[in-house]
Simulated scan of single mutants.
Amino acid sequence: MRRELALRTIPPNAITALALCFGLTGVRFAITGEWQNAVGAILVSAVLDALDGRIARMLRADSRFGAELDSLSDVIAFGVSPAIILFLWSLSFVPKYGWVIALTHAVCCASRLARFNSQLDAGNPKKSAGYFTGTPAPAGAALALLPLILWLSTGMEIFQRTYVVAPWTIIVALLMISDLPTYGWTSFRLRKGWRQTALLLIALVGTSLFIAPWPTLSALIILYAVMIPFASRSYAKVTRRVAAESLPS
């Protein structure tokens, strides 16, 4: 019997493939020294990565193939590509150790995604509560590229120095494979009275991304980094509340 493939399965997988292509295009721009375009390609890849899963669920086109393709795309777009970009931009000034540090980011990203895939069929208490285990791959790529984005924003050469980029890259790599809970979209709860304020902030941030993209991106990434310790405390509160509710009355 001939097996046919539903057309609704094509759009999410096509978006995933497009995210992979944008990630590799970032490397192409880095080779020619077009750093703004290199970072922009990675950011577009992150946006596409955020869309493919939601579109798959909306179209009821979830599949094991799509999940595997998404992970492979993430390894390349958020692991390999940022590592090469950082090496070409800064870490190449110490070629031997710089390349090892770049590899650390790529390997930790791959390890994180392998751990994620291994837990697809198993229960994950952090995920069920709306939190991630460790820094997600797109956020890890953004954090790793923060020195480059700060350099584009300020023009200060200190952000390109290897003694700044190298330890920061290692810290971000370790955050990706850590067991620290980090915020996910579903972990946030917005009070009704804050709806208008949230819409105003989103509009202002969106406008700022067009007017002053690099300072705005720098501020958003720094804000995310500052929120990581608060996510651990927030998750601890959630687990205590769940434990209290499960106790017999």
Rank of each mutant, 00 (worst) to 15 (best):
R3I: 13
P11G: 08
I15C: 04
F22Y: 09
V27Q: 07
A30W: 13
I31K: 06
T32P: 02
T32Q: 13
Q36L: 12
A38L: 03
A38K: 01
G40E: 14
S45L: 09
A50Q: 03
D52L: 08
R60H: 14
D62P: 05
F65C: 05
A67G: 11
A67H: 05
S71T: 11
A77W: 01
G79E: 00
I84G: 01
I85K: 02
W89A: 08
L91P: 11
S92Y: 08
P95T: 10
Y97V: 11
I101G: 01
I101M: 05
T104W: 07
C109S: 15
C109R: 00
A110S: 15
R112K: 07
R112N: 06
L113R: 06
R115M: 06
Q119G: 08
N124K: 08
A129P: 15
A129K: 14
A137R: 02
L146P: 01
L146F: 07
L148C: 03
I149G: 00
T154K: 07
Y163G: 08
I170G: 04
I171H: 05
V172M: 10
I177A: 04
D179Y: 07
D179G: 09
W185E: 14
T186A: 11
L190P: 09
W194P: 01
Q196F: 15
L204F: 09
L204E: 11
V205C: 07
T207A: 14
P215G: 04
T216W: 11
L217F: 14
I222V: 15
L223W: 13
A225T: 06
V226C: 15
I228M: 08
A231H: 07
S232W: 08
R233S: 10
R233M: 10
S234M: 06
Y235N: 10
Y235G: 10
T239M: 12
R240Y: 07
S246F: 13
P248W: 08
